[in-house]
Design a protein around this nucleic acid. Sequence first.
DNA 1: ACTATCGGGACCGCCCGTTAGT
DNA 2: ACTAACGGGCGGTCCCGATAGT
Lengths: 198, 198, 198, 198
Amino acid sequence: MGLQQRAIETRTRILEAAEERFALEGYDATGVAEICQEAGVSKGAFYHHFNSKQEVFLQLLQGWLDGMNKQLSVLGKAKGDVPDRILSMTRVVRVVLQAAQKGLPIYLEFWSRALRDPGVMETMIEPFRQYRVFFSEMLEEGVEEGTLELADASIAAQVILSFALGVLVQGIFDPEGADWEQVSIEGIGVLLKGYQKR
Amino acid sequence: MGLQQRAIETRTRILEAAEERFALEGYDATGVAEICQEAGVSKGAFYHHFNSKQEVFLQLLQGWLDGMNKQLSVLGKAKGDVPDRILSMTRVVRVVLQAAQKGLPIYLEFWSRALRDPGVMETMIEPFRQYRVFFSEMLEEGVEEGTLELADASIAAQVILSFALGVLVQGIFDPEGADWEQVSIEGIGVLLKGYQKR
Amino acid sequence: MGLQQRAIETRTRILEAAEERFALEGYDATGVAEICQEAGVSKGAFYHHFNSKQEVFLQLLQGWLDGMNKQLSVLGKAKGDVPDRILSMTRVVRVVLQAAQKGLPIYLEFWSRALRDPGVMETMIEPFRQYRVFFSEMLEEGVEEGTLELADASIAAQVILSFALGVLVQGIFDPEGADWEQVSIEGIGVLLKGYQKR
Amino acid sequence: MGLQQRAIETRTRILEAAEERFALEGYDATGVAEICQEAGVSKGAFYHHFNSKQEVFLQLLQGWLDGMNKQLSVLGKAKGDVPDRILSMTRVVRVVLQAAQKGLPIYLEFWSRALRDPGVMETMIEPFRQYRVFFSEMLEEGVEEGTLELADASIAAQVILSFALGVLVQGIFDPEGADWEQVSIEGIGVLLKGYQKR
DNA sequence: ACTATCGGGACCGCCCGTTAGT
DNA sequence: ACTAACGGGCGGTCCCGATAGT
């Protein structure tokens, strides 16, 4: 309906404006008035749709987490044998880095918040754990299909993920510092060679 | 004891109090009055020693960076052949993690700030680069001494560091999520095996 | 009655309170909180209507200047020949003095400000110049109607205005020091006699 | 003695610095620290020589008043008949204006203060009254020497002084607005003609 | 005589959220 | 659904002055 349509749009505009401002200046340094101005609405509208600035933040966080989950489920449907699938993931490093870089400031805000709120912390950590489970299962699949040979799939998964995360972190904070794509290919290559069945 | 002595102590007390409050509540959420109370000094004293809250923050950052540099120079003086030295580093993971965990909140504050201030960003990234250089030289030493065999020492260094950083990051944010010491030993083992001369 | 109505009233109350406090204690010595209390509004309301204390001050100044202009246009419509009109003006000295005395403190504030802000200075001086032009034209009218005889109407206007201003200034700062009405009548008398056609 | 000499110099430096800052920014807007910096001394020195910022201000005021008195006594020693003496005073308008312009800001500060402090007000007004007495006596001298003819010397003195003050005020605030020297000569001429014995 | 250090207060500006009104 | 007006309070900064020390 017309009215509802407009309301939804207003909501979205507020959320988008908030994300932008939070990313640019941080949560605390961003005023509600600022968000409203950016969104082109009045403060009344803001508090009509949200109960507090905090709530807007949490909604943004939730949206971000949902996005993560969706990504994960896409990864699960890849084809080929396990080593190939891992290598193919490596190839998208550049894309991932670019995406991550844009979202980094707000992401750091999420973490800052998480450190002071155990509930948020739990929610933030969850994706990490899911990645680990997902990867662990994938490696076990590799053992079953006979392409990998490893003592403990869980630990191996953590090793590979740690390396990937390390590349990511450095790539995000210091993109020009090295050719991170090359580093990731080399590193994954060495690790896979160590884990591959001869 | 002299005037100067007392002044230095006051300064230190302010810095320590600020560090604690910043870590506990974040930069923005911490008031100058709060810092002063914690430090047991007046606002007059605070603004006698520092021109702004921001300046206190930057001094803390500087102190932290200096500490990093000192650590690095200690690492450089280790003995034994290169693979052994690397392995011995992994053994201190637990200690490093504990130390890092304590400093994490303020560290995240540093990064949040860095994202909004290119100058700070540069300063924050520098240690990363120095670690890379340091490690790269160490690996070349390994090549010279005949224990390692690698195509490009610089990239290999980045690979190893990325893995280490990844373990660290996960260990900091999710200490209970896995046995990070074991993961680091396993991972470094695999990587070294890949780089060691047969 | 509407929202707007109330807003206007609030604005007015703030301006009036500010004028009173500025006059009583001076611009710098008057706090925003003080003005708010006097006006019976909150600081939120204050900063909703004005961006700063300075802005309130400038609005007061503007209002005062507008009042001056209005007065001038009233003077222009008097009747009788020119010498009579000038004499009739002198007779209101007492009234003018009383009015001026009340507004003096804030007026001095205006000037103090003007000395430090060329833009304000220009605005403050403008009325002076307009008075000169107005008077000059009036004297020329006297020449045309044959009641006055003078070499340079502009200079004569400045002479008369200077005298008037001098009486005013002394009357404002030292009302009890002399019978300023009598002085003004005597002085204007002598000047007019010097300029009147025999 | 050496020590005393240095102390006096410090005092003077503080007073000069204060005068400059007060003139530039106003009494309230000028901080003690600012004065100290300008004078090149510490705050301790400041409060060693003066008990408060206010005291410095009052000392400046006193100095200014003493200067006024000195000027007056110089005027009293002029030669020639009274009309000539008055005319000769007129000729120094330009010099007076320039001097007054420089001291205007601090002078306005004096008056602002005076309005809120009856004691200061009395001190500020005194020179005005002395000028009136001085002038009144001079005019009576003119009557005695047979060059002037007037009903009430006191009022005539006030008339002439009012005109002079009016020219001065305008000349100070709007120096470019007219040729104030010419205006003063013309005005005094007309007034003297009215008062001179035929 | 002069300095460095410190105390505590108060001000302006802003901010988050609410309410009266459309 | 949305706006304008408003409430009350906090936060960084600075300021005047006092004191401990040289």
